Simulated assay, not measured.
Amino acid sequence: MGKAAERLNIDFVVSTGDNFYDNGLEGVDDPAFEDSFTKIYTAEGLQKQWYSILGNHDYRGDVEAQLSPILSMIDARWLCRRSFHVNTEMADFFFVDTTPFVDKYFTDFEHSYDWHGVFPRSKYLADALETLESGLRESTRKWKIVVGHHAIRSAGYHGETQELIQHILPILKANNVDFYMNGHDHCLEHISSLDSPIQYLTSGGGSKAWRGDTNYEHYHHGMKFFYDGQGFMSVELTSTEAQIMFYNVYGDVLHKWKTIKEFHSTV
């Protein structure tokens, strides 16, 4: 990953959540932060800004610790928020905190979740949806990219997230989103939407891969690529072109996809 990052001269890194297994961080002084982040991603090409979102495993720990600016003082690359917007020259990235949308976590009594800042849940979800919709509607960037931890479309072990299909997908379709990127499923995959331009990109191959539980048949011709193993992906954008590449842990390219987009200005 470090070698690929250096070769591509990346601008930043996106982490799709579940940043610290199995139960997030215990606090801002938890050594897991440096052991699992600072001391792992040491390659020169990865010394860029990291934009991270929370996964369901992060919610099992101290959520405020991951959001704390104290961690950015320990490692300046770290930035983690619940939902936020990153405006780049070519694209608008909208990061969405998807865990509070998923009903089952609120009835999971085998694990403890840190819901501070989420209740009242209905207001939290309504605010997140309103922020996403207004941000996408007002975006003037050439590419619109939404990032969440949970999948909307996936042939992996966890599969589709019905709550996101119900609440978030209509917003993505209505606002011409180009890519939805997620983690959660421990695999790499690319699914093309058959009813919109949206490309669904799963990059969850950081650990616990090789599950061997897939559902290809559900997607028919929409499935462009699936890899039930560890790896990562890259996104390269120009004013008219986007190129997606998936890699194994050795940096070998497993899948490459390119699209050209025409933009028409109005006077």
Rank of each mutant, 00 (worst) to 15 (best):
M1P: 12
R7H: 08
L8H: 08
N9C: 11
F12S: 08
V14Q: 01
S15P: 03
G17D: 01
D18V: 01
Y21L: 09
G27R: 13
G27E: 08
E34I: 13
F37R: 05
T38H: 04
T38S: 15
T42D: 04
Q49P: 09
G55H: 01
G55M: 02
D58S: 07
R60E: 10
V63M: 04
L67F: 08
M73I: 15
L79M: 14
H85R: 10
A91V: 11
D92V: 06
F93L: 14
F93P: 04
F93N: 06
T98R: 01
T99V: 06
F101I: 03
F101N: 01
H111M: 07
S112P: 05
D114T: 11
F119Y: 12
R121I: 07
T131K: 06
E138A: 05
S139H: 07
S139M: 06
T140L: 15
R141K: 13
W143D: 01
K144S: 06
G148T: 00
H150I: 00
S154R: 01
G156L: 02
L172P: 01
D178I: 04
F179Q: 01
G183K: 00
H186A: 00
H190Y: 03
H190E: 02
I191N: 00
Q199R: 07
S203H: 01
S207H: 10
K208Q: 13
W210Q: 09
Y216N: 10
G222T: 12
K224C: 10
F226S: 02
D228W: 05
V235Y: 02
E236N: 14
T240A: 15
T240F: 13
E241T: 13
Q243W: 08
N248P: 06
V249K: 13
Y250R: 08
D252V: 13
V253D: 13
V253Q: 15
K258A: 12
I260Q: 10
K261H: 14
T266D: 06
